[in-house]
């Protein structure tokens, strides 16, 4: 027995002088296994071709379709409409990122800036000879690095973070997680002092207020709480 779902979405184009932010309500028949992404696509195809939202993979891998669903940041492609008992989904774009239009925000440039800020690449003086076999990694360490490296840069941890919303320069859990990733990687030769220079201030690790909404909303279930606590302990211990 299908039901009607109601999607309320914020519509606003900050680049237009005539656009005023307003909520638009759409009603559509729910189909089996309907995700929010499917619902939005249907709305755009049949009701409102002007509605903007982001997506690429439709499978929770690319991290493009993050948005606020009934106040919580989520991936539209992994949000099932059937999970909402009253069938009402109120959508806002993710805060903290530059609003492009309606539900579409610019996470890409933000992530790029964050990557540069935390110098998100292996720092080593070793010359790599690609003609030779790579030295084996300790499986336990490799596993730890891969676990943290599962981040898809969807921006949900950033949108969920009250600290980030109050303090726009805060690096966010994604940035701190990235630091923890290179910290765990033995290929990277950076010292604690080097990491301190990247995030050892009130816009970095010491700005985090441990609200843990990052971890609670992360679609990849990354251990952000533990990694941030670990980095804090390491960087506070520096003399």
């Amino acid at each position: 027995m299908s039901r009607t779902v109601t999607i309320k979405a914020l519509k606003y184009n900050p680049n237009s002088v005539v656009s005023k932010p307003h909520m638009v309500e759409y009603k559509l028949e729910e189909t089996e296994g309907m995700t929010l992404f499917i619902a939005l696509s249907k709305i755009r195809e049949t009701m409102d071709p002007d509605l903007s939202f982001d997506f690429v993979c439709r499978a929770g891998i690319c991290g493009s379709c993050g948005m606020m669903v009934n106040g919580t940041p989520q991936l539209a492609c992994r949000t099932l409409t059937k999970d909402y008992d009253d069938g009402v989904l109120e959508l806002f774009p993710m805060p903290a990122f530059k609003l492009l239009k309606d539900l579409s925000v610019d996470t890409g440039n933000w992530m790029n800036d964050m990557s540069k800020r935390v110098e998100s690449w292996i720092h080593t003086n070793e010359e790599v000879d690609i003609s030779k076999l790579e030295a084996p990694s300790d499986p336990k360490i490799a596993e730890e690095v891969f676990e943290i490296d599962r981040c898809i840069e969807c921006g949900i941890c950033v949108a969920a973070c009250g600290t980030k919303l109050m303090r726009p320069d805060f690096v966010g859990a994604v940035g701190l997680n990235r630091v923890a990733r290179f910290y765990a990687d033995p290929h990277d030769n950076r010292t604690d002092e080097d990491y301190y220079e990247l995030v050892g201030d009130d816009n970095g690790i010491f700005g985090c207020m441990s609200l843990v909404a990052c971890e609670d909303n992360c679609p990849k279930h990354l251990p952000l709480q533990s990694k941030i606590a670990f980095m804090r302990r390491k960087l506070v211990a520096l003399r």
């Binding site: 106040g71 919580t72 806002f92 009250g162 109050m166 303090r167 609200l211 843990v212 909404a213």
Partner: peptide, 20 residues
């Protein structure tokens, strides 16, 4: 800062965010 935190807290209804 007050306004954005309050709005976020009311929207998200997340325990630790409200407790802060």
């Amino acid at each position: 800062q007050w306004q954005v935190y309050r709005t976020h807290m009311k929207m998200m209804k997340h325990d630790e965010t409200s407790m802060w």
